[in-house]
């Protein structure tokens, strides 16, 4: 809110190659503004997760390589920085599929999240996470493997809050969750953004939920950004409505029979 126009993260012309041959990102550019929620939408295999992993540096652990372009965080290039350094710079990725440590209990998981912070901060940070997620406090001595999917997602986000990042990368927090839980989680994400002023880059397949809490959105297809704009403008865009929100031109629900028009009627180049 203080500097609404400042870009915390700037990705310029990013090209990522996996296993030396598979070109996943083909010149992707995007920006995440300080204090805002930026949504990154797109179909399976478009390169959404790859984008986040490129930022957090985790891409190196998967034989991926940034071959072209730059990632700037606070105007410093970070695409050659090791993942553990990047966490210390204030970027934290909540990975797809929650990835909680199943044989550790809730509190131990949270301690791992705060690994880069001084131990003296731990009690206060724990309080804060429990304030957002009272359910985690109830289960704090339980093994993470025995939590429900929603609670695991809460734990994954709680773990990120322990690290007090400036930039939070959220990869598909709605994955495999019931609609009510998705709503609950997204409300908390919105609160975290509003109350902590945390900048969030949100990757989602659930376009409606993502655009309802984000300020700005990008649509990624085939390794390129094909469209971007404020979330309200995207929500009202007829193409987005048709291809991502499942609505027809007039805003009415589309019949499944018409879906075959998908390819032909797309107005942008994928």
């Amino acid at each position: 809110m203080n500097h609404p126009a400042m870009d915390l993260l700037k990705i310029e012309n990013l090209e990522v190659v996996y296993n030396d041959v598979i070109l996943v990102l083909k010149g992707l550019s995007l920006r995440a503004q300080q204090g805002r929620i930026t949504a990154l939408l797109g179909p399976n295999g478009a390169g959404k997760s790859t984008t986040l992993k490129a930022v957090s540096g985790l891409i190196r652990t998967e034989d991926g390589e940034i071959t072209e372009g730059a990632i700037r965080y606070l105007d410093q290039p970070i695409h050659r920085t090791l993942p553990e350094r990047i966490v210390r710079l204030g970027i934290f990725q909540v990975m797809e599929g929650r990835r909680v440590f199943e044989d550790l209990n809730v509190e131990e998981n949270l301690r791992c999240g705060g690994f880069t912070r001084p131990s003296s901060e731990f009690p206060a940070s724990l309080e804060r996470v429990y304030a957002y997620f009272p359910r985690l406090q109830e289960r704090r001595k339980q093994l993470a493997g025995y939590l429900s999917g929603g609670e695991q997602q809460m734990l994954a986000i709680g773990r990120a809050l322990m690290a007090k990042p400036k930039l939070l990368l959220l990869d598909e927090p709605s994955l495999g969750l019931a609609p009510l839980l998705v709503e609950e989680i997204f409300t908390i994400v919105q609160r975290v953004n509003a109350e902590e002023g945390m900048t969030i880059l949100l990757v989602e397949q659930n376009a409606r939920a993502a655009l309802s809490i984000s300020h700005h959105g990008y649509i990624l297809e085939n390794g390129r950004i094909v469209m971007d704009g404020s979330s309200t403008s995207l929500l009202n865009n007829p193409d987005v409505q048709e291809f991502y929100l499942g609505l027809g031109h007039g805003g009415e629900k589309r019949s499944y029979r018409d879906v075959k028009h998908y390819r032909r009627r797309k107005r942008w180049l994928g």
Partner: peptide, 20 residues
């Protein structure tokens, strides 16, 4: 605890700034 976490999921541990 970080050692146990690393044993379970290296990549997740790394995402938390644990130097594997």
């Amino acid at each position: 605890i970080a050692m146990r976490a690393t044993a379970m999921d290296q990549q997740a541990a790394q995402s938390m700034g644990i130097g594997v």
